[in-house]
Structures are given as C-alpha cells and as structure tokens.
Simulated assay, not measured.
Amino acid sequence: MIIAVFPGQGSQTPGFLAPWLQVEGAADRLAAYSDWAGVDLIAAGTEWDADRIRDTQVAQPLIVAASLLSWGSLEGGGSVGGVAGHSVGEFSAAVAAGVLSEEDALRLVGIRGRAMAEAAAAEQTGMSAIIGGDEATVITRLEELELTPANYNGSGQIVAAGAMPALRTLAAEPPAGTRVIPLQVAGAFHTRYMAPAVDALRRAASTVAPDDPALTLWSNRDGESVAAGAEFLDRLVAQVASPVRWDLCMASFAADDVTGIIELSPAGTLTGLAKRAMRGVPSVAVKTPDDLPAAQMLLSGADA
C-alpha cells in the first residue's frame, strides 16, 4: 500500500509556495483558501519572511493550503491507500480521506491557529527537540523538569514542551547521550497550555458534519486507524492539547504493510523520519511541482 503523509508546523520556509503558483488553477484555489482561513496565503507563501510565517496563525493554514494544493496536483492520487498527518497535517489528511471538505478544513485551521496563538501568548512557553538517548531516561528527565513530551516523532526524537526556564535547564543539563535543539515556535503546543484553544476549536467543530473516511486514516493519538469521521474530528480537536504519537503512526504503517510513502508539500520532515524508522520503504518528498513525476512513478509501480 502506498500512503500519503502531510507535515505539521515548522515545515514552512520563506517563498516555498511560489513554484506551486505555476500550477494551473493554483492562484484561484489559494484565493479561496485565504478567504476561508482568514489569512493572505499567497503573500504569506511567496513574500513574507521567516519570522512572519512562523506566527502560528499564519503557519498552520499556510501548511495545510500547500499540502492540499500539492495533493490536488498529484495525478494518480486515487491509487493512494491510506493517509496520515503530523499535528496540523491531520487536517490535510482528513480532506484527502474525504472526512472534511477543503472549506471546513481551512476554516477550522484558521480558528485553530488563532486560538493557539492566543493561548501561547498567555505564558512564556516553548518547545525543544531532543535527539538521541534512551527514551525512558529522557522521559524521566522531562518529568523532573515538569516538561511534557509533546511529540514522539520516532527515530530517536522527542519534542519537549513547557515553561521556558525549564527548557533552558534542559538545554544546559540534557539527558545523557542527547542533543537538545530549541525550536522556533510560539508556545508549548500539544500540552495543557493549549486547553483554551481546544475549547475554541471544539465550538467551531460542532458546526461541521464530517463524513467517514474513504481511505485508511491513521490518528496521532495512538497510531490506530479510525473508521468514523465523527471520531476523527473529535480527535482532531483533542490533539491540540495532547501529544503527537508519530512514532506509533509509523509502527502502524509498518504493521499494515505500507510499501511506499509520499509526503506532500512542504515536504521533507516526515520522509526523513521514515527513512530512519522504516528502512527500505521508498519515499518521495513533494517539495515543488518538479517532484510530482517521482511521486506518480511510485504510484504507478503500485498499480503494476
């Protein structure tokens, strides 16, 4: 089974959307996405600098818009057997699986981004990636510092989140055998600090009528596939303040005989994790339209 995966926040870079505007109809689609999300996504993806697109309320709809634009440009996408997204990428996966319409997804992501930005502004918090080390030792160290393991990314990477003084202590006194990298994000996402954003998103999601997925759709909560659209939407809301278990998603990919992975724009992060955790499984990172033929070739091989 070939699957499509959709990246989360932090995968955006200045100007990355510019090549996609050469795709027929892209400008019109992005204009609609902008209206639904409440952000000028064309300007954000082509003109704004790194600091401006790092803003949570900009980054989240920008990433989802790019993913959906590249997904819509993938000829042979009907051969994809399953989808998953990392954090906000779950909204893109929900659209690809038929659970949400593009309009509902962009509208909800716009609300999610604004609510998470507001929650992040309430306290000085952040996130740091921890590379390497023994997982149990890392978790124990985080507990000592009252930090939360917000992302279990697999391949020896955990992202810690919480108060800035504790993160600075973590960097100064890391667990044995690890490297700590502060992340350029606005707050402690996927932790209790985001509880107000959960409430805001839940109110907005209550107006949406999701459909059941037409493809296998794995969840960040536990790596399991979800068969009911309403349940997946509930999980989308809750994951704002709960850990992302991408490690468990990749374990499920392996157990479900995934034979190829296509990561949609802005791509590279998830295929990088897969190359280390799922050795031997071919993958394609669709960063620009020039990468579409390689993705289509992978799909055509699955059909042969």
Score class of each variant (00 low, 15 high):
residue 131 I to V: 15
residue 78 G to H: 09
residue 72 G to V: 00
residue 59 A to M: 12
residue 74 L to N: 03
residue 93 A to R: 00
residue 73 S to W: 04
residue 103 E to N: 07
residue 125 T to M: 05
residue 119 A to T: 00
residue 133 G to H: 11
residue 103 E to A: 10
residue 145 L to H: 04
residue 118 E to I: 02
residue 53 I to R: 09
residue 88 V to G: 05
residue 127 M to Y: 03
residue 87 S to V: 07
residue 61 P to R: 11
residue 47 E to S: 14
residue 69 L to R: 02
residue 115 A to W: 00
residue 139 I to C: 05
residue 61 P to I: 13
residue 109 V to Y: 04
residue 114 R to L: 11
residue 74 L to V: 05
residue 49 D to Q: 13
residue 63 I to L: 06
residue 143 E to H: 12
residue 75 E to I: 02
residue 100 L to M: 07
residue 117 A to C: 12
residue 67 S to F: 06
residue 48 W to I: 05
residue 86 H to W: 06
residue 118 E to N: 14
residue 61 P to T: 08
residue 126 G to M: 06
residue 124 Q to A: 15
residue 74 L to G: 04
residue 145 L to S: 08
residue 79 S to A: 15
residue 55 D to K: 14
residue 82 G to C: 02
residue 110 G to I: 13
residue 66 A to P: 01
residue 70 S to T: 09
residue 143 E to Q: 15
residue 123 E to A: 14
residue 104 D to K: 04
residue 90 E to I: 08
residue 109 V to H: 01
residue 116 M to H: 09
residue 121 A to C: 12
residue 138 V to K: 09
residue 97 A to I: 00
residue 119 A to G: 03
residue 48 W to E: 08
residue 126 G to A: 05
residue 133 G to V: 14
residue 125 T to L: 08
residue 58 V to A: 08
residue 81 G to M: 01
residue 99 V to A: 00
residue 74 L to W: 10
residue 51 D to Q: 15
residue 116 M to I: 07
residue 45 G to Q: 15
residue 57 Q to T: 11
residue 139 I to D: 10
residue 94 A to I: 00
residue 100 L to E: 02
residue 140 T to M: 09
residue 72 G to Y: 01
residue 71 W to S: 00
residue 64 V to L: 13
residue 135 E to N: 03
residue 127 M to V: 11
residue 63 I to E: 12
residue 101 S to Y: 01
residue 89 G to I: 01
residue 56 T to E: 13
residue 84 A to Q: 01
residue 104 D to L: 09
residue 62 L to H: 05
residue 127 M to I: 06
residue 144 E to N: 10
residue 89 G to A: 11
residue 56 T to N: 12
residue 116 M to Q: 10
residue 130 I to S: 11
residue 60 Q to G: 14
residue 62 L to K: 07
residue 131 I to Y: 12
residue 52 R to P: 07
residue 70 S to Y: 10
residue 130 I to N: 07
residue 89 G to V: 06
residue 91 F to D: 12
residue 65 A to V: 09
residue 85 G to A: 03
residue 112 R to H: 04
residue 80 V to G: 07
residue 104 D to Q: 09
residue 57 Q to R: 15
residue 115 A to G: 08
residue 84 A to H: 04
residue 99 V to I: 09
residue 128 S to Y: 08
residue 54 R to K: 15
residue 108 L to V: 10
residue 67 S to G: 15
residue 99 V to F: 02
residue 47 E to P: 03
residue 100 L to N: 00
residue 73 S to I: 04
residue 122 A to F: 04
residue 77 G to A: 10
residue 124 Q to E: 14
residue 61 P to N: 08
residue 132 G to D: 09
residue 61 P to L: 13
residue 66 A to V: 05
residue 119 A to H: 08
residue 135 E to D: 15
residue 112 R to D: 01
